[in-house]
Every structure is written in C-alpha cells, then in structure tokens.
C-alpha cells in the first residue's frame, strides 16, 4: 500500500469510519459526526472533512461551512487542556477581565491561542451557567472552577499536566 501524505492516519481513518457508519448517506447527522470526530482527532483537519463529506454525501464546502459556523469546532490543533474563561454577564461584572489578564500573564498566550508546549488552549466562552460562582472558568469542558482570584489561578492550573 502506498503511504498517503495528506496527514491522515490509518488507525484514525478506521475509527472515523466507524463514527460515520451509522450516519452514512444521512446529511442530518453532520453536527453529531463532527462532534465525535473532533473528540477523536482533537481537531478537524482537511482529511477528516473529506472523509466525512464523502461518508454523509454532502459537499466539502458544506462541511467546512458548518465547522466555521459553530464555535465548538476547530480547524487547528488544540492543547491537551482547554481553558474556557466565562465571559457571561455575571462573570463580566465580577471580574472576567482580571481572570483573563492573570491567565495571559501566566501562560503568555491570548484567547484563541495554544501554549508552545501544547499544554493549554485558552478561550473565552459565553456563559457556562455557573453565575453563582462568578467569575468562573471551565477546564476540559467539565471541571468548573469558580470564585476565581489571581492568587488561586496558578494552583488550579497545576492540576492539569
């Protein structure tokens, strides 16, 4: 077999096929397939998009259109841990600016960027619904850290290698 140089990975290709199988020929499953594919690969590179487009029977343009519409999907690799700083109203009035400033200083990256060691990706999200704990952030989509102050943020980050 000739090695392909598009960046795809044999093992991942097979697993991606398994994700696509229940939705084959069913364009309605596009968002669900993309969500699972991103969980598998970490982001959505072109080879993943092509495989999904062919599998579901939609155009590549449509796949790209959906990916770029939703904030959850990423075209570029992300860090091992995703820090989502809540920028909802309650957090905003209680100190989102401070949280972001502290994180920018600690990690030396801006929202949307990933640290050079691929440990953290920093982003801002619109309300995680933890307004009672404002200001808050959520790490890896599940761990909510609330009542943040500049002094406690380094300790929070230490929990994520």
């Amino acid at each position: 077999m000739v090695a392909c140089n598009c960046g795809c990975d044999d093992e991942l290709t097979k697993q991606l096929d398994k994700i696509i199988d229940p939705y084959r020929g069913n364009p309605g499953g596009l968002i669900q397939v993309l969500t699972k594919a991103q969980n598998l690969v970490g982001y959505l590179p072109k080879w993943v998009q092509i495989q999904i487009a062919e599998g579901l029977g939609v155009s590549l343009q449509e796949v790209f259109g959906v990916i770029t519409f939703y904030a959850f999907f990423s075209l570029i690799p992300r860090g091992r841990h995703k820090i989502s700083v809540c920028a909802g109203t309650a957090c905003y009035v209680k100190g989102t600016k401070m949280v972001l400033k502290t994180l920018r200083e600690l990690l030396d990256i801006k929202p949307g960027q990933t640290t050079p060691d691929s440990r953290f990706t920093l982003e801002q999200v619109r309300c995680i619904g933890a307004c009672g704990l404002a200001p808050a952030m959520i790490i890896d989509g599940k761990d909510v850290h609330g009542r943040l102050e500049p002094e406690i943020i380094p300790g929070v980050l230490e929990q994520y290698a």
């Binding site: 364009p27 309605g28 499953g29 596009l30 968002i31 669900q32 993309l34 969500t35 449509e62 259109g65 959906v66 519409f69 939703y70 904030a71 959850f72 999907f73 999200v125 619109r126």
Partner: peptide
C-alpha cells in the same frame, strides 16, 4: 438529544430547527 455546538443564534427557533438538521444554524 441533539447537542448544540456553540452558537448563540441557535436559541432562535428557526435557527435551532435548522441546526437539528445538521446545518449552519442560520
């Protein structure tokens, strides 16, 4: 269950219905 993918406009009813169909939630 259909899981949203991070677009505020999908709370608008016609956008939400379009999103359920797997499309851009416009």
């Amino acid at each position: 269950i259909r899981i949203g993918a991070g677009a505020f406009v999908c709370g608008e009813e016609t956008a939400l219905l379009t999103s359920i169909e797997g499309k851009r939630g416009e």
